[in-house]
Amino acid sequence: MSVEDPREWEPKILAVFCNWCSYAGADLAGVSRMSYPPNVRILRVPCSSRVDPNFVLRAFQKGADGVLLSG
């Protein structure tokens, strides 16, 4: 990842998705052959209420540029 040239820099995004809705939604995006930027990495949780603030902090600590919570 290079910060010198902003045109080449791509953010790394962690997405934490609820198994029952947004994870299924991401599945549906696949089934529908939609296209979206590949920067996002999806983590499956049993419910958005399982998201601990620590997950977000850890993600930034480990180099994520953004965290998307959805549920």
Binding site: L14, L43, R50, F55, R58, A59, K62, G63, A64
Partner: peptide, 10 residues
Amino acid sequence: LLAEVDALCQ
């Protein structure tokens, strides 16, 4: 879950 976060943000 934290191990997964680590692996994904590596």
